[in-house]
Computed example of a mutant assay.
Amino acid sequence: MSDAELTVTVTGPVATVVIRNPARRNAMTAAMWRQLPVLLDGLEADPAVRALVLTGADGTFCAGADLGDLDELLEAGDGSIAVAAEERLARFGKPTVAAIQGACVGGGCQLAVACDLRLAAEDARFGVPPARLGLVYPAPTTHRLARLVGPSAAKHLLFTGELVDAARALRIGLVDELLPADGLAARVDALTATVAERSRLTVAAAKEIIDGRADDERVAWWHGQVRASGEAREGVAAANERRPPRFGWTPPASR
């Protein structure tokens, strides 16, 4: 039986998915790439889950794709199971946070960039190594990386395949916050708790719009949801009364 797996725990409104493959520094196997979208489908459908954290076991985020499955990953190109898992993570309907320690390389960086936010420990190291392996980084992944860090920084990462430290990752926008290793978990807990308290409507709409997945009709639909739900009236009343808001909007069935 393989020790390579993705495990899920749900604590209050936050689900945590842990990448675990101790023999290969948490590299993602083909089975794990296939497993991720299935897990995400279940968590997205769970109304109790308000946010998702993706992290790695034992002080390492993910050292990439397990190259024992290289032929299978190469055969499909941009239609690979790795790209499918990345795209499903990027489309996850609730806020996602990558909590990163140690190596975040290749497929690991691919998953981290697909999350909404990235918090890293000071010992984290990042790399995008296709040029060292003779591979072409998938086009959706390359575009997502370039949107995040800018064309020049993306080219540097891709052209050189060099590892960059957490401080540089913060400077180029690859991570959002940098923490001492012993403070990362507490900060992730605090951030996700804050997000979970906010209006689901606001957060879901913001995610769609920022990610470029909401056309004019969809934006109008979101504004209609605000009017119909009473969410804004409750938020303003709570602010005036100096009390926590009691937001009640829940996502309708997927369009």
Score class of each variant (00 low, 15 high):
F92E: 00
V105F: 02
R34P: 12
V136T: 15
V10W: 09
R233S: 14
G102N: 01
A4H: 03
T60Q: 08
R242E: 15
P140M: 03
V226P: 00
R198C: 06
S2D: 14
A57V: 04
R187E: 14
L43S: 05
A82F: 04
D211W: 09
A146I: 01
E162V: 11
V195N: 06
R213Y: 08
V136M: 15
T142H: 12
D78G: 02
D78A: 05
V10I: 13
V128E: 06
T141G: 04
R25H: 13
G248D: 11
G248R: 14
G235S: 05
G248N: 11
E44N: 08
F247E: 04
T9C: 13
L74A: 15
V128N: 09
V195E: 05
T16L: 05
A239H: 12
R91P: 01
R88M: 06
A190Q: 07
A186N: 11
R213E: 05
P251L: 14
L191F: 06
D66P: 08
V226F: 04
A85V: 09
V164K: 00
T194Q: 15
A65T: 13
D46G: 01
T11Y: 13
F247I: 10
P251K: 14
A51H: 02
A239C: 10
L40N: 01
T142D: 09
A206L: 11
E197L: 11
R227W: 07
R118H: 07
A57Q: 07
P252Q: 08
P140F: 00
V164I: 12
A139K: 08
W222D: 02
L157P: 02
A23H: 12
L145F: 03
G127V: 04
E75N: 09
V128S: 11
V83W: 02
R200L: 08
L133D: 06
G79K: 02
T16P: 00
D165V: 06
A190T: 07
A120L: 04
G134C: 11
P13Q: 03
S80V: 15
M28F: 12
R171K: 12
R227V: 08
A193S: 15
A85D: 05
E197K: 12
E75W: 13
R246Y: 07
L170G: 10
G212D: 00
A103F: 06
C62V: 02
V164M: 00
A15R: 01
L43D: 06
E231Q: 09
L40H: 05
K207M: 09
A90W: 09
L73M: 15
L43G: 06
P37W: 00
N26K: 08
P245W: 04
S199E: 06
D116A: 03
A84D: 13
K94R: 15
V14Y: 05
